[in-house]
Amino acid sequence: MLLELDDQIIQSTGLSQEQLRVELAVQLYEQGKITVGQAGRMTSMGSIQFQQELGKRQIPSNYDKDDLDADLKTLSKLFQ
């Protein structure tokens, strides 16, 4: 799906298209609506650079016990 915004709307924000994309991704991430990976793809930054952007903004990672359990399970499979 392609999301189109009128150029006047984008201009009224005072942001470039890229900046607006980052702002949208940050807000959606903070609300728990998208993952870091999805935000990285949405912004074309990649997940590591997006995480760095979150750090600059002092936004904590949405990483909980379920995420840790999934990561540990993956690591255990890799090192068997």
Score class of each variant (00 low, 15 high):
1 M>F: 13
1 M>I: 10
2 L>E: 11
2 L>W: 11
2 L>S: 11
3 L>Q: 05
4 E>G: 05
4 E>M: 12
4 E>H: 07
4 E>Y: 12
4 E>I: 08
4 E>A: 13
4 E>D: 02
6 D>A: 10
7 D>N: 13
8 Q>H: 08
8 Q>A: 14
9 I>L: 13
9 I>C: 03
10 I>S: 04
10 I>A: 02
12 S>Q: 06
12 S>N: 05
13 T>G: 03
13 T>R: 07
14 G>S: 03
14 G>D: 02
14 G>N: 07
14 G>F: 00
15 L>D: 02
15 L>I: 00
15 L>W: 02
15 L>G: 00
16 S>V: 06
17 Q>L: 10
18 E>A: 12
18 E>D: 13
18 E>G: 02
19 Q>F: 00
19 Q>S: 06
19 Q>T: 02
20 L>K: 07
20 L>Q: 08
20 L>Y: 03
21 R>V: 07
21 R>I: 01
21 R>T: 11
24 L>M: 13
24 L>C: 12
25 A>T: 06
25 A>E: 07
25 A>V: 11
26 V>G: 09
27 Q>P: 03
27 Q>D: 15
28 L>D: 08
28 L>P: 02
28 L>M: 12
28 L>K: 12
29 Y>P: 03
30 E>T: 12
30 E>V: 13
30 E>M: 15
30 E>A: 09
32 G>W: 08
34 I>L: 10
34 I>G: 04
34 I>R: 00
34 I>F: 02
35 T>I: 06
35 T>P: 04
36 V>P: 00
36 V>W: 02
37 G>C: 02
37 G>Q: 14
38 Q>C: 03
38 Q>G: 11
39 A>K: 01
39 A>G: 14
39 A>P: 03
39 A>V: 09
39 A>N: 03
39 A>T: 07
40 G>K: 07
40 G>V: 07
40 G>M: 04
41 R>A: 11
41 R>F: 08
41 R>S: 13
41 R>N: 09
43 T>A: 05
43 T>R: 08
44 S>G: 08
44 S>T: 10
45 M>F: 13
46 G>T: 05
46 G>R: 05
47 S>P: 13
47 S>F: 07
47 S>A: 13
48 I>L: 13
49 Q>H: 09
49 Q>F: 05
49 Q>G: 03
49 Q>I: 05
49 Q>C: 07
50 F>S: 04
50 F>D: 01
50 F>E: 00
51 Q>P: 00
51 Q>K: 14
51 Q>C: 11
52 Q>R: 15
52 Q>G: 11
52 Q>N: 14
53 E>C: 01
53 E>L: 09
54 L>W: 08
55 G>T: 08
56 K>M: 09
56 K>P: 00
56 K>Y: 12
57 R>W: 00
57 R>F: 00
58 Q>N: 15
59 I>D: 05
59 I>A: 08
60 P>R: 01
61 S>V: 09
62 N>I: 10
62 N>G: 10
63 Y>E: 04
64 D>Q: 05
65 K>M: 15
65 K>D: 12
66 D>G: 04
67 D>I: 03
67 D>G: 10
68 L>N: 06
69 D>V: 11
69 D>T: 09
70 A>H: 05
70 A>I: 00
71 D>I: 11
71 D>F: 06
72 L>V: 09
72 L>D: 05
72 L>T: 06
72 L>G: 01
73 K>R: 15
74 T>Q: 11
74 T>S: 09
75 L>P: 01
77 K>C: 02
78 L>Q: 10
79 F>D: 09
79 F>C: 08
79 F>H: 09
80 Q>V: 13
